[in-house]
Each structure stands twice: as structure tokens, then as C-alpha cells.
Design a protein around this nucleic acid. Structure first.
Lengths: 218, 218
DNA sequence: TTATCATTCAATAGATTAATTGAATGATGG
DNA sequence: CCATCATTCAATTAATCTATTGAATGATAA
């Protein structure tokens, strides 16, 4: 076997590590910030044992590292570029697979039945923030918000949305974001807040993409 | 199963399509330009039947498309971004896997025993070309050169190098390139030409990366 | 030290993927 | 229309991957 073939085989191993929905879910959670196995398992809907196995595979592929903190093992992404890699994978899949288009369409159809409510692009969001026209709403769970968020964002986890409405400004448009383009949290938040009459739209990306782009995070 | 999970599963399918060394070899060849199954099979060192199977998988993942031309099926990449995707996969693997470093080191050690001959970066190559200081040598097979190459490049396939030395200019540094960072052709060409006393270095990327970056191709 | 907790390891069975073989399809040239 | 060629399809076996179970490890707290 030639050196080239060996190199391609190693690249293939890395790609295979990405080739499982559960592992992608773990990576998506890790893109929000480091976390112990139990948290990762819960977010991905796995048993701890199973999550641990998948994390070992990600570790062997060089995608995550782990350090011990007391009883817990804390996992994190080895490399910010992994977020970019998953984003590119998403783009390629979205462009070239009809199945993908169908699912994405369904995800977006709910909160935008008449097509009037396009998601806010990164450029539009930056402009709106600079001009003070928009307020940022982070609807992820508290621990993810605490691990890092967009500057000036207000954190109201989706579950507490109704109870904490008074924290939302009334004088500006609200832009909600969560874990990424496919994360349901901001979709649901937008639906709920629309019902209540708030001027609100989704950010088309999420925290990890913002951070990977080198934009400021807190 | 939620929509999110379904989306991640589809992304995982695309990643799995990249998760095999033979398929990566096929994609690397396709990144040079479209080709019929027989050519692809030969380049990847596969039987035609086996190559066909792998190409079906790549097709199902939306990474390649095929059209019939007479008796032959011509395959091509669906999307220029696939080159970028593979490049990013390579970068992440190179940064985070010791095994990878070892292999890459070995690949580079041969033609640069004393560390004096670093590969030429894209920036350095562009500058050298603009100033007329360098001549470009494409050592890929004729059909790949014909399907697209860097402007002003001279094509001498590696196998004919010794026979066609008179086509090389003697007044400039020569920069050799081939299919990509891990392609052996330019390494071997550099070794041979060094022995013969030519001032020659490798381009650190290859034709597909140049093209994917939006630089001009002929 | 012992009990407890978080995580990993080892072993298993079931599911998926890969390579190989030979037959089938679709286009071309006689 | 028939023979030929390039490619694909179908079926098989071997190999690999996944989820599950229960035992083992490593750190903490009583």
C-alpha cells in the first residue's frame, strides 16, 4: 500500500467519524462549548455508555479531546475548523440532495407560512446591531449560554420563554438564535413570540458559526 | 425521530460516502476533471465493477453526477465545494492526528532532506508568476492536463520527463504541481529534476485547489 | 478505608458496508 | 438484427459498525 493510499485511508477514518447522526449531534453540542459526558449524552438523546463509545471514536479521529475534572471527563472540540467542516458538509448536502431540501423546507415552513419572514443573515444582523435596531435573544439552555454567547444577547431558554417575557425589549426588533441553522429552539421561539405579537425573526446561523467566523463572543 | 435527527442522519450519510479511501481517490481524480468509469477505476487502482459501485454511493450522497456519452458514463463532481471540503478534512486531520503527521513527514522527507526546499505557497507562486521569475510544470497525465490546467503551464507527464527535458526553460526557477498536496507526481518530478541540476520546487497545492479558489484556469 | 459517582472497558448480537463474481442493460458498428 | 463494448445490477461472503449489558477504573466524600 502506498503512502498516498495510507493518507487517504486516514482521511477516510476521520470522515467516517463524522458519518453517524449521533456523533454529529455530539459534535454540534460540543460546538456550543465543552461539556461532560452526561450533558453530551442528554443533549444527543443517548445513554451515557453509548455516548462514551461514540466520544472515543471522535477522539481516535482527532476531532475531540478530553480532560478529567474531578469525577467528570470534560470533552471539547480539538479544533475550531471542525465547525467550518460541518458547515461545509451541510452546504454541500443542502445543494445536492433533494431529500435534504425537503426536510429543510419543512423545518422552515412552520414559522414562515407566507414567506415573509426570511431568516436574518450575518451581515444584516451585524448592521442591525450596529444601528441599535435589533435586540439579540439566545434561547439555548443556561449552561450553553454561560459557555459563550453573542455580545449583548439576552438568555431566555425556550422552556422559560413565557415566564420571562418582561425581559424582552419592546422598542426593537428581536433576533433569536440558538445552536445552529438546524437547531429547532429558535424556530419554536419565533413561532411563540410571533403569536404574542413580537416583531421577531431567526438568525440563519447559530453561536458556533458566529464564533468560528472570528466574530466577538462573550 | 425528529426532523433534526433526520437532517443529521442525512449529513452523516454524506460524510460516510467520504469515509473510504478508494472513494476519496475517485473524488481526487474527479477534482482534476470529469472522466469515464474506466479512467477513474484505473487511477484509483480498482476494478471497473468495484469503481462503479463506489461511484453509485458517491452519487447517492449527491457528491457526483453522471451523464451518458455514447457507451461511456462520464462522472463529474456536483459541486466545486467538494474540493474545499476535502481540503478542510485534510487540514483538520493533519493538525490533530499524529499518525497523519508521520506519513506527511515521510512524503516530504525524500525530496527535502536538509529542509531547504519548502514547497511554494499560493501567494509566492502568484508573485513569482507575475514577475516572470518562475515557469510552471504540470506533471499530470495528458488527459488531466487537457481537462484544465494553470495558465502558462507546460505539461510533461512524469513518465516522459527524461525524454522531454528540452521543453523546460533554463532561465527561470521551475515550480512543479500535480493533483494536490498529497499527490506523489510532483514530488518525484522534483527529485528527478534536482538530480539533473534544475532549480525546481513543488507547489504546495494542486490544480483542484487552485481552481476551487477561483483562480484562472485554462 | 469504604461507599458512591462518573465514566470507560469488554463482550455480545444484530445491522450495515465492502469486495467479488457473473449476469443484465444500453449504445454502437457491422 | 447481431456482436461488441462499457457499465450497472444482483447476490454472496467477509469485514466492520452499532447498541446493549455488566464489570472495571478513578476520583471524591464520609
Amino acid at each position: 500500500m502506498t503512502d498516498q493510499q495510507q493518507l487517504l485511508d486516514i482521511l477516510a477514518q476521520v470522515a467516517r467519524a463524522l458519518g453517524n447522526g449521533h456523533r454529529l449531534a455530539l459534535l454540534e453540542r460540543l460546538a456550543q462549548g465543552e461539556a461532560p459526558v452526561e450533558t453530551l449524552a442528554a443533549t444527543a438523546g443517548l445513554t451515557v455508555g453509548n455516548a462514551s463509545q461514540h466520544l472515543q471514536q471522535l477522539r481516535r479521529a482527532g476531532l475531540v479531546t478530553a480532560t478529567r475534572a474531578g469525577k467528570q471527563m470534560i470533552y471539547r472540540l480539538t479544533d475550531e475548523r471542525i465547525v467550518t467542516l460541518m458547515g461545509l458538509l451541510r452546504e454541500v448536502a443542502e445543494t445536492n440532495l433533494a431529500e435534504m431540501e425537503r426536510l429543510v423546507g419543512r423545518l422552515f415552513a412552520d414559522d414562515d407560512a407566507d414567506g415573509a419572514l426570511e431568516a436574518v443573515s450575518r451581515e444584516a444582523l451585524l448592521a442591525g446591531l450596529a444601528e441599535g435596531r435589533v435586540a439579540l435573544l439566545d434561547v439555548r439552555p443556561e449552561d450553553e449560554f454561560a459557555a459563550g454567547h453573542l455580545p449583548e444577547a439576552i438568555n431566555i431558554p425556550l422552556a422559560q420563554l413565557d415566564a420571562m417575557l418582561e425581559r424582552l425589549p419592546r422598542d426593537r426588533e428581536i433576533v433569536a438564535y440558538c445552536r445552529g441553522p438546524y437547531c429547532a429552539l429558535s424556530h419554536e421561539a419565533v413561532q411563540r413570540l410571533r403569536q404574542l405579537g413580537y416583531p421577531v425573526r431567526r438568525f440563519e446561523e447559530g453561536f458556533p458559526e458566529w464564533k468560528a467566523a472570528g466574530l466577538p463572543v462573550v
